[in-house]
Design a protein around this nucleic acid. Structure first.
Lengths: 203, 203
DNA sequence: GTCTATATCCCGATAGAC
DNA sequence: GTCTATCGGGATATAGAC
């Protein structure tokens, strides 16, 4: 993580950034075990030992990528505002999450790779995740009980938002193969999901 | 694949089956590169060279697992009946797909692993997949145009069904961590998805 | 058919010159 | 800070005895 160490030169910052960018590319496409330092080094335009001058190990590079990811990933949920208009708040969350899939598909796939394999390197982050989801589920439940939202299990509503938006990044090959050329999956998904959640949530 | 070769003895069939079962366990949890023949051999209760007496290579084991998977995975969609009652047909498809996630989470994760990595070993199957989806999307579109189903992009409706049902298998760790103990994710998902698709599809 | 032993290769990490 | 060269571990696959 960029700790803002003032002793770090411009070159160091640039190389660290290039390594993390290359590592994201390779880890998200191949998984942790599937990725090799040779691939990452080639992608970053550095030699393999030079990678290990900047990071202690392959594991350390991966850990640093994951470190900030969950926070970024959950930021839109954190911003769900209890004081806002219920349906608009949720629709805004869906749209932001879909935009994140479009803008950060590799991060989505890195995350999916971890989850698929049982979240071995993310396990200690899961309790915090549960706390946040429980809190926001409480907000949604209150909205439903106040008659401002159709009733429905709020935890599974949140799962649905995750599943429907991340699918376009994680299964992008499949989506593009099925739609064929001449489609923008994310534009179409935006329209479809607006419709879906409008119908699901209206009282 | 069990080709029913009559020259194959009972022991051979039993061992092949044990290897494929073990390989499914390991490949789905670790990915292709992450899995080792040692793990598969241990899980199958055989020695590593004995594995390679039954299969030519690690790749061959993996290929055989994938070979039948897409057909099994798409069977419920194939059964979507143009002559049936539209909403009931789609709800039945959703329920069957969710039951498959419950009964075959490892197969779901094996498939997800492949897709995440760009479907390198499934690429030639994608055109057939597109053809099937296009056909069924046509059926759904006709239902909508006949006023028997709410309008909405049928391709993205199918993506939504895949995403919402497979999520419970692929992200099972996360789902369980968020729900906490004392929940049956699949039971709850069944109720939630019934509700979601009922609201989405009703005219 | 199944095993032990091993060949061979690949990968992460280190040594050490510059 | 960056490189070439290389060590050492682990993985796939094979050889060959039983």
């Amino acid at each position: 993580m960029d700790d803002g160490n003032p002793a770090r030169t411009r070159i160091q910052r640039r190389n660290r950034k290039a390594i993390l960018e290359a590592a994201l590319e390779v880890f998200s496409a191949q998984g942790f075990r599937g990725a090799t330092l040779d691939q990452i080094a080639a992608e970053a335009g550095l030699s393999k030992p030079n990678l290990l001058y900047y990071f202690a190990s392959k594991e350390a590079i991966h850990a640093e990528l994951l470190a900030g990811l969950l926070d970024i990933w959950l930021a839109p949920l954190r911003e769900l505002d209890p004081a806002g208009a219920p349906q608009a708040e949720i629709l805004r969350y869906v749209r932001r999450k879909l935009e994140m899939s479009r803008a950060m598909p590799r991060e989505s796939r890195l995350f999916a790779n971890e989850m698929l394999q049982g979240a071995p390197r993310l396990a200690e982050a899961l309790p915090g995740l549960k706390a946040l989801v429980d809190e926001k589920a409480g907000v949604i439940r209150a909205w439903s009980e106040a008659g401002k939202l159709a009733p429905g299990d709020p935890h599974h509503l949140i799962f649905a938002i995750w599943a429907l938006t991340q699918h376009y990044a994680d299964f992008e090959v499949q989506v593009r193969a099925v739609l064929g050329p001449g489609h923008d999956p994310y534009d179409e998904a935006g329209a479809f999901l607006d419709l879906l959640f409008a119908r699901l949530l209206r009282v």
